[in-house]
């Protein structure tokens, strides 16, 4: 019933660190506009998987095929380093847990957003500033703060700035690593609400790594549950959370503290 081709096809993805396994035998397809949540405890291989998928860490085995806007399906690890970096800048976004890792703290908020546009060829100052302003506003950052450095922002604002920086180039695929990780619950709710609206309105596909099952219930269509580097269960988000099949998924779900 899904007419579109998968945006990302992952086959047998494995990453070994010596004789230790980072992730092993991971396979799934991601369709345009779809959000997949990856859950599991720390050390389950979520971040290794995310790094392999986003062309930052070369896997030991397996393939990742991305259906690019410009050139059609590409096998990531047959590309040159420069081609991979171009993809990351032009068609993808990468939101890190700690906004300090994804932002340049020494330049203004506007420059953090504008820089990404320049990296894909924008040159007109007025236009760059205009679009930067628009994206700050989309992420509910006051336009008056455009010339301030992110170091003067709260944690929640920094995270929203990092997301603005990623969305300004209109990516089709965004990778997020614990995007609500270090934030207060009230700030988290606001960010989730924003993210959900943006994902829906922009038709973004998203791979969201988190250990927070509440976040995936609200944001993701499908879930992958990882344990010791392997996907032990995958399916529709509410089905996996309400009727988990694997012992490990059952343990994760039953460990949530009721509010």
């Amino acid at each position: 019933m899904t007419a579109a081709n998968p945006l990302l096809q992952v086959q047998g993805l494995t990453k070994r660190y010596g004789d230790r396994i980072g992730c092993a035998g991971v396979s799934f397809d991601l369709y345009p506009g779809e959000v997949i949540g990856v859950v599991g405890e720390s050390g389950s291989g979520k971040t290794t998987l995310l790094n392999c998928l986003s062309a930052q860490l070369e896997p030991s085995e397996g393939s990742v095929i991305y259906d690019s806007r410009s050139k059609g399906p590409l096998e990531l690890y047959s590309l040159s380093e420069a081609e991979r970096r171009l993809l990351l800048r032009s068609e993808w976004g990468l939101v890190r847990q700690n906004p300090r890792d994804g932002l340049r703290m020494g330049v203004s908020a506007g420059a953090n957003v504008g820089e990404r546009m320049m990296a894909v060829g924008a040159r007109h100052y007025g236009e760059i500033r205009g679009r930067a302003g628009h994206w700050l506003q989309q992420l509910e950052i006051d336009a008056e703060r455009i010339d301030d450095r992110p170091a003067t922002f709260s944690g929640g604002m920094q995270q929203r700035l990092q997301i603005a920086r990623n969305l300004v180039t209109e990516p089709r695929l965004v990778f997020m690593d614990e995007p609500t990780g270090g934030l207060d619950v009230s700030v988290q709710a606001r960010l989730l609400d924003l993210l959900r609206g943006l994902v829906r309105d922009l038709g973004l596909a998203c791979i969201l790594v988190t250990h927070d099952l509440g976040v995936v219930r609200l944001l993701s269509h499908r879930l992958l549950v990882m344990q010791k580097g392997r996907v032990v269960e995958q399916g529709l988000t509410d089905q996996v959370l309400d009727d988990p099949q694997h012992p490990y998924s059952q343990m994760l779900v039953s460990s949530i503290l009721p509010v």
């Binding site: 019933m1 899904t2 369709y31 779809e34 269509h221 499908r222 399916g235 529709l236 089905q239």
Partner: peptide, 14 residues
């Protein structure tokens, strides 16, 4: 007629 038992997540969402 759509079979729901064993259906793909995308089908269920649709």
């Amino acid at each position: 007629w759509i079979e729901l038992v064993g259906a793909k997540p995308q089908t269920v969402l649709e």
